[in-house]
Design a protein around this nucleic acid. Structure first.
Length: 572
DNA sequence: ATTAGGG
DNA sequence: CCCTAAT
């Protein structure tokens, strides 16, 4: 008799499981099907467990056999299914795998409690779980890898409980106090199986939306009415605790699946998200620019690498008087306060940077920051400024190169994919970025020194405007930063500063005056700029501005005229 | 790859 | 300084 009953249960379990494994193949995996799947599995496990318990000590063998079946067949079957690619829905799959484990595990632990330890059994269980976790990890949802590990740890504890007999169980339970309390309390009755499925999905929704809706799977959007009913489970926040709780709860009854669904780790990861985003909205430029410009590694990246050491470079004495001639026309022109400290050149960098910071880009770029975080995590080596080239193979990285406009669209997907990376990143971010932010200077923003400007002027006088790359090569080969574009920009600014440019309108004149106050450009330099501007009008279109009288002069001036100009300037 | 120009 | 379009 006793054999008959258990065996029946076993048979049922077998059939159910098999059917369940097959079912998903037929249709597309909908969330409902997944839920049913989980539920049934859990139920199976529980049924088996009940049988085992009722069968008494004499049936230990049978129970163990059952366990073996579960562990060997079911658990092994899962990975194969996964590998076969039946479940590509990440969340579904992940939850399913976990569910599976939980169901089996709970039965296992219970059995052990009842009948004592069975080493072989435990070993098989743990092995199977490792398998599952592996399969799951490489499939999609990496975040679940963490959970799986946690889970395994928890389960180990349970094993220990089983081994150390019932008497030891309470002490072991301290690992997850909630588990104990739940086990002892009558809470297991507060949920009926009839509402199980609803509870499942609802709780999912509740938790997800609560956490930040980023992981919410579109399939299961429902009203979370039942949420309140399970506030207890939802309140649990620590992932491990949740897992443990779930597994132990499983031994009780139907409540198990309900609470099992609430995965707290999610919240943790979400926190990881929110935090980095707000912490530093920076770092974007570096990664993005370096990533986008991976093509020009030779110049650009090299330049980035040198930024650090260069910063400490000693400023030549001549430049101390007029340290740098930053020409932040548009931005600083608006800051009247700048006029009150005209010669506070040192602080100019900071003010400028802060302005850039608050300019607004950072707000819209939060999403990209996430991706960048991911990038940072991908190549584990902590790179200060350089090391930009080696991360292109990862999907996250390529995504990070998306335009800003696309970020909003892709951000959601990215988040899911990156949640694992984020956790790893947090540390990195703290020591990496904070330091940079604190130091006011931004990597890509370097003040132009007088000597640099002189070189630029010299170059322009020799090659004329527009041949920036050549000028760069000849005059700025030493300074890896200062791309040709930089030279061009600087020249543009110099033209503005010298007043040669856009001799237009009253507003410009006034602004120029204002700028003069805080821009300590040496007159000699300005004069030269003026000179050169006359012969090499920058916007080449409007060259006929001044030197209309001597066309050939502007054509082949170069050295002789340069000398002449130089002399005149020096004479001044 | 370089340049011009807008932001 | 960054980004993009046009050479």
């Amino acid at each position: 008799m006793e054999n008959g009953h258990p065996s029946l249960g076993l048979e049922d379990g077998t059939i159910d499981v098999e059917r369940l494994l097959v079912e998903p193949q037929d249709g597309h995996m909908s969330m409902d099907s997944v839920i049913c799947f989980n539920e049934k599995i859990t139920k199976n496990a529980m049924d088996i467990e009940d049988v085992s318990r009722s069968s008494g000590g004499s049936d230990t063998g049978i129970a163990q056999e059952r366990k073996d079946f579960l562990n060997g067949e079911v658990l092994n079957a899962m990975p194969s299914e996964i590998e076969a690619g039946y479940f590509r829905l990440e969340n579904d799959f992940c939850s399913m795998g976990e569910e599976y484990l939980l169901g089996v595990e709970f039965a296992e632990s219970i059995t052990n409690l009842d009948y004592g330890s069975s080493e072989g059994l435990q070993a098989s269980v743990s092995d199977s779980q490792i398998q599952v976790s592996t399969a799951g990890s490489d499939t999609v949802c990496r975040s679940d890898l963490f959970r799986t590990y946690d889970f395994r740890d928890c389960q180990k504890d349970h094993f220990n409980v089983g081994r150390s007999k019932l008497s030891d169980a309470p002490s072991q339970c301290t690992i997850s106090p909630r588990s104990c309390s739940l086990q002892n309390s009558g809470k297991s009755q507060n949920s009926s199986r009839s509402s199980f499925q609803d509870v499942l999905s609802d709780e999912n929704d509740g938790r997800f939306s609560q956490a930040g809706e980023m992981f919410c799977s579109p399939k299961t959007k429902r009203n979370s009415d039942v949420l309140t009913g399970h506030g207890d489970a939802i309140d649990v926040i620590e992932g491990q605790e949740t897992l443990t709780t779930t597994s132990v709860q499983a031994s009780n009854t139907d409540v198990l699946p309900t609470q099992k669904r609430s995965r707290k780790p999610t919240k943790r990861y979400i926190d990881e998200f929110v935090d980095p985003i707000t912490t530093h909205s920076k770092k974007r430029r570096e990664v993005s620019s370096s990533t986008v410009k991976y093509k020009s590694l030779g110049v650009k990246d090299h330049k980035k690498c040198q930024v650090g050491p260069k910063a400490i470079r000693v400023v030549p004495p001549e430049e101390f008087s007029v340290v740098a001639i930053q020409v932040p026309f548009g931005s600083l022109a608006n800051k009247e306060c700048a006029e009150s400290h005209p010669y506070n050149t040192g602080a100019r960098v900071d003010s400028r940077n802060s302005m850039t910071k608050s300019k607004g880009k950072c707000v819209t770029l939060h999403n990209q920051n996430i991706m960048e975080k991911c990038v940072t995590a991908v190549d584990v080596k902590k790179r200060g400024d350089c090391g930009t080239g080696q991360k292109k193979t990862d999907g996250c990285v390529t995504e990070a190169q998306l335009k800003r406009k696309d970020e909003h669209a892709t951000a959601a997907h990215q988040k899911k994919r990156n949640e694992c990376a984020i956790a790893v990143i947090r540390k990195k971010r703290d020591d990496n970025l904070t330091a940079e932010e604190i130091s006011g200077r931004r990597k890509h923003h370097r003040l132009w020194t007088i000597s640099e400007v002189r070189k630029l002027i010299e170059g322009v006088s020799q090659y004329g405007v527009g041949r920036w790359s050549r000028i760069k090569k000849l005059f700025f080969s030493a300074s890896a930063h200062r791309t040709s574009v930089d030279l061009k920009d600087k020249w543009r600014n110099l033209l503005k500063a010298s007043g040669m440019q856009e001799q237009g309108s009253q507003t410009q004149q006034g602004e120029k005056k204002r700028n003069m106050a805080w821009r300590p450009l040496p007159k000699s330099i300005l004069g030269r700029v003026c000179e050169l501007a006359t012969m090499y009008p920058y916007p080449k279109g409007q060259r006929l501005k001044i030197c209309r009288d001597s066309p050939d002069r502007s054509a082949d001036i170069t050295l002789s005229d340069y000398r002449r100009i130089l002399r005149s300037i020096n004479g001044n």
